[in-house]
């Protein structure tokens, strides 16, 4: 399993990009008992059969790694949901996109720490390519302000997001949103 909840989420964003998505919406809702994730992309999607295979840790399409026998991204999430009273669901339509919904039960002892969400967000924003990523943070109960990050908007202000200088500013910006 991954070290932090953030790592699972970054892994899924990377999946979306590898599936050729150029629009990804990530919504994270924080409640007293856990974190709800909703991720929707317009990548290549999967057929029902491919989707079932993606849930199997001993399946990989063999494209990325010719001699490898495992594909652990989605199985990791299923494992976590099963062992920590969380939830996980995935639906996909070939040629349209994929949608993931998950609940990370932070009150369960077997759920890893949430980890650094600020790092997660700026890293998800700075993969190569010209994709759109919209991240929404929603706090229904603890008094913090909801906020939204739009990659194209931030890129327009900061220029090349891959410059280390832009990354520093981007991280400061996201940290200031997350704190308040």
């Amino acid at each position: 399993m991954h070290f932090a909840v953030c790592d699972y989420i970054l892994d899924m964003v990377q999946n979306s990009l590898e599936a050729g998505a150029d629009r990804i919406e990530l919504v994270l809702t924080e409640r007293y008992n856990g974190l709800t994730l909703s991720l929707r992309d317009n990548g290549c999607g999967m057929t029902e059969e491919e989707l079932e295979k993606a849930k199997d840790p001993f399946y990989t399409d063999g494209i990325k790694h010719a001699s490898r026998k495992v594909g652990l991204g989605i199985p990791f999430l299923i494992q976590l949901a099963e062992t920590s009273e969380g939830r996980f669901g995935i639906t996909s339509t070939k040629g349209v996109g994929t949608e993931i919904a998950a609940f990370f039960n932070t009150t369960h002892i077997d759920t890893p720490p949430v980890g650094n969400l600020v790092s997660l967000f700026y890293q998800a924003m700075t993969f190569d390519g010209s994709y759109e990523l919209i991240i929404r943070r929603i706090f229904p109960s603890n008094g913090k302000d909801d906020y939204e990050l739009v990659r194209s908007q931030l890129a327009e202000i900061l220029g090349d997001l891959n410059r280390a200088g832009s990354m520093g500013l981007l991280r400061d910006f996201i940290a200031s949103q997350e704190e308040n």
Binding site: S119, L120, Q123, N162, A164, G165, M167, G168
Partner: peptide, 23 residues
Amino acid sequence: KETMDGFVNTINANGLKNVTIRQ
């Protein structure tokens, strides 16, 4: 993820402007 944070921190602390970080 921590590695990447480490690069961003050190590069900015040293004021290096010509570095890009890709994933």
